[in-house]
Each structure stands twice: as C-alpha cells, then as structure tokens.
C-alpha cells in the first residue's frame, strides 16, 4: 500500500504523517474529552449540573470496573465477550439468593445480603474460571470460548427468571449499597476507585501483574523463563468475571431488583471499546488500567453528551463503532511506524 506512492516524495510525506500521528497518539483521549466537555457544556447548561456529573461518574464507575477486567484479559492476549452476560447472571443470582436467604433465615438482613453477594460474585468467578480453564487447558481461542459462555450465561440468567425481574431483596441492601452516598457521591464511585487503585497496584507491583504482561508480550519467552502460564491466564478471566459480577451486584442494588436484561451486549462492547481506546493492545502485553478507566469515563461522557444534545440514541452506536475502529487503527499505525527490531 505504502509502496503505491512514489519513492522520492516519501520522506516529506512521512514526517507530516508523523506529526499528525504524534498529536493523535499522545493527545487523542484528552483532546477528545476536552472537546466533548467544552462543546457540550456550551450547548447544554444542564451538562455540568451536579446531578448530571454524579450520574456520569456513577455510570462511568460501572463501565470502568468491567473494563479493568477486560483490559487485564486482553493484555494477557485473550478476550472476554462474556462480561455483559455475567453482569446479568450475577444480578439474577444475587437477587434470587438474597431473596431466598432472607425468606429462609429471617434473621439479621446482613447475613442474607452477604449470602446474596457471595452467590453473585461466585457466579461471575465460576464463569471466569470456566473461561480460563477452557482457554488454558484446551488451548482454544478466548474469543470463541467466551462467545459460547456469553450465550450460555445469558441463557441461564433468563432461565432463572423467565425474563421477569426478581424482587424480595432486603431493603437495607438497596439502601446501603445502591442508594447510599458518601460526601455527596454514591458508593459505586468509591468502589470503582478502589478497584482501579487495586488493579494499578496489581499491574505495577505484583508478580501476577508482571506475568500477565509477560505472557501477553511473548508467551514462549515467558514459558522458557519459567513462568507458569495456566494459573495466570485463568486468573485474568477469573478477575474479569469477578469484576463483571461486582458490577452486576451494584446495578442490582441500584435498580432494586435482579434483572436478566442488565449488562448485555452493550456493556460488553463498551468494555472492549474502553480497553482499546485506553491504549490496550489487542496483540497483548501492553496497556494500563488507569488509562482504560479514563477511556471508560470518556465513553460515558460522550454517551451522556449525545443524549443531552438530543442526538438520537439509535445513532449512538455508530459513534462508538467509529471511535473504536479509529483507536485501533491509530495503534496499528503507530506500531508500523516505530522501528522494528
């Protein structure tokens, strides 16, 4: 493709491309974010209102938590398409378990709540474990395995509820986790911050994080260096499943019922979009969760801005699709530009 242009003009061509690319590479996310924020706040007075800001942060928290798990899986060279379905599954399982426990025990609500949360997290971790084991033991592509578990998990969620919301959770669960605020911000934001900080620590300072980078960067080198692959691969899927389940629980508390329609394909797509826009390389080995979290915030702001500007919600997927493709194309472009060793 590049050889189609004449050879002599190439060097001048390349440097201007390099400039463009440099600007885009370093500044894509902040620049886009600034444009969206400034533009929208000029057009809609409501945008920077306290309620809206809190709302954005809350929705961004959910996405950021899932995207952190997704990023970890992608850095290790995999893919997790099942996160959206896990959100739904965890929501249903949490609500069912909590309702059943509170009906059966009747005692202090905290016990029922704990049982429900444990069951919800457990369901997500179980799906993650299954994904991880299939990928690492059977050596099949993570993409297809999670495509399968996505369908299966969504099916189980629907089967458990018949598509009807599950009520009967203790009121204090909804009050304490879904609606409580601290210093004016909902609990979900603090949980997301904690998750992000923990993941930053895991990535930078722990063996697990280091090995995830190594496995994604060059699995063969990791093997001959004595890194055991299987537990770490499984670990990434378990973390991803667990974090998706956490979001399922938080969403359940927010809406007050267990619903098989939560999460879904949209959330899965957005988590991949956030990871990819946040600089996680689909080739594995590269990416930082803090940037991914910023990308999640950006996507949420974008969606919110489009809503406020009365842009048809049906057109919104088009923006998401284009931005995602653009981000990866830029990444690919910069990879080809840098010298190969």
């Amino acid at each position: 493709m590049s050889s189609a242009t004449t050879l002599s003009t190439r060097s001048g061509h390349a440097s201007s491309q390099e400039m463009l690319h440099l600007v885009l590479r370093i500044g894509l996310l902040p620049i886009l974010m600034a444009i969206v924020i400034i533009g929208t706040s000029l057009l809609s007075p409501y945008f920077l209102g306290w309620m809206n800001v809190v709302n954005i942060l809350r929705m961004a928290s959910f996405l950021a938590i899932i995207a952190c798990g997704q990023a970890l899986v992608i850095i290790a060279g995999g893919f997790d398409l099942s996160v959206g379905a896990v959100v739904a599954l965890a929501s249903v399982v949490t609500a069912k378990a909590m309702a059943a426990a509170s009906a059966a025990i009747g005692g202090p609500e905290i016990v029922a709540i704990a049982i429900g949360i444990a069951a919800g997290l457990g369901s997500g971790i179980a799906v993650g474990l299954f994904n991880g084991l299939c990928v690492s033991m059977l050596k099949v592509s993570g993409f297809v395995v999670t495509l399968g578990t996505m369908s299966a998990a969504a099916g189980i969620g629907l089967l458990l509820t018949n598509g009807i919301p599950v009520y009967g959770m203790p009121n204090s669960f909804v009050q304490a986790i879904g609606r409580s605020q601290f210093l004016g911000f909902p609990l979900a934001i603090y949980i997301a911050l904690a998750v992000i900080l923990a993941m930053v620590f895991v990535q930078r300072r722990t063996l697990f994080g280091r090995y995830v980078y190594a496995i994604g960067g060059n699995q063969e080198a990791a093997v001959v260096s004595g890194v055991s692959i299987r537990p770490h691969l499984v670990g990434t899927y378990v973390v991803s499943g667990g974090l998706a389940a956490l979001v399922g629980i938080l969403l359940t508390a927010l809406v007050g019922s267990g619903q098989a329609s939560l999460g879904g394909d949209a959330m899965m797509l957005q988590s991949i979009a956030a990871a990819v826009i946040g600089g996680v390389s689909l080739r594995g080995g590269i990416g930082r969760v803090e940037v991914v979290a910023v990308a999640a915030l950006f996507l949420t702001i974008l969606g919110n801005a489009l809503n406020l500007l009365h842009i048809d919600s049906r057109i919104q997927p088009i923006f998401l699709g284009l931005i995602m493709v653009l981000a990866v194309a830029l990444d690919e472009f910069s990879r080809r530009r840098t010298a190969r060793v």
Binding site: D312, G321, V325, A329, E332
Partner: peptide
Amino acid sequence: VVVALLGVSPLVATLGSMNIAIGVATT
C-alpha cells in the same frame, strides 16, 4: 478496508461495523 488496509483485527473492525450497522438499521 479496515481489516486489510488499516490492519485492525477482524474482531474490532467488525465489532465496530456491527455497532454502525445496528445504528443505521434502527435509525
């Protein structure tokens, strides 16, 4: 074009166009 010329993985490229097609169809 996105897969072959821009070198984007088929997964992301078609995930992107999937969103676009959904948007177009519903719009």
